[in-house]
Write a protein that binds this DNA or RNA. Structure first.
Lengths: 134, 134
DNA sequence: TATAGTGTGTATAACAATATACACACATGA
DNA sequence: TCATGTGTGTATATTGTTATACACACTATA
């Protein structure tokens, strides 16, 4: 099993948090359905080039949130999530990220129009590259 | 001397980095002119409710980047920066932040249009609150 | 029951943040 | 001119967090 998770060593944010955010997104975004068996902590650790302990922490945290269930000796599985919870999470998280970027831009003395233009350009470029690759 | 820097204890990102990013932005953004004396490490530490050592690290890192100059027993001062460097930094950093947010949104299965709409709404709301407070 | 897969617990190293004590520069006044 | 007080940056030791390696326990299956 492979998961579309990417970590950035350059970011000062701790590894476990980067992984948590993305895995949480995959579950709440609906890409991983209830009952799906996740990769073993070792397997994912190799894939992400980090230690198994770090993955263990991620799984433990997400289990405490009720998003996954882990059974010793067997594996780790995606738990069931209410649809309403999923939708709410999706928009809320996206807004949070955008707002953070907006704040950063304003602090850099960019104008509202500059930022809106920059964002539109980024989206256009991303759209094109996506179509080109598919 | 007061600096418009705010730190967020909730973020997993280390304190010194949050402060560095913002202070670097103030210098490269042109809000702090060459020769300006920055607050003492103690003063800024009190203002940001963190330790003086953390501020020391920030000043030290920025000095290694050549953005500030520190003289023992005297204080810490803003160094000169080329205008071209400033402008480049400004747009580059803003784009980086926006792209990060865009990536996060896409990973949450938002559509391009959804994200563009969300961002426009955020900007409108921000504009309104800014006008209201000024 | 042997074995190979899984998650779990303990000990260790590196890093972040802090408190505390120290060294230097400069203004002030004898 | 020199002592000294108050500001500045600097160095060391301590605590908590993050990431790791290694040994252990549980589960499934041949």
């Amino acid at each position: 099993m492979w998961l579309p998770i990417r970590i950035d060593e350059q970011r000062p944010e701790p590894l476990y948090h980067q992984i948590e955010v993305q895995l949480r997104g995959l579950i709440l975004g609906g890409q991983l359905q209830e009952g799906t068996m996740l990769p073993s902590i070792r397997e994912l650790a190799v894939g992400l080039k980090c230690s198994a302990i770090t993955i263990r922490r991620v799984y433990q945290d997400l289990e405490n949130e009720g998003l996954i269930r882990t059974r010793q000796g067997t594996g780790t599985f995606v738990a069931g999530v209410e649809t309403s919870v999923r939708d709410e999470h999706r928009l809320e998280r996206a807004s949070e990220e955008l707002e953070r970027a907006l704040e950063a831009g304003l602090q850099l003395h960019c104008t509202f129009d500059e930022l809106e233009g920059l964002f539109r350009d980024l989206i256009r470029r991303k759209k094109d590259s996506k179509e080109g690759s598919s």
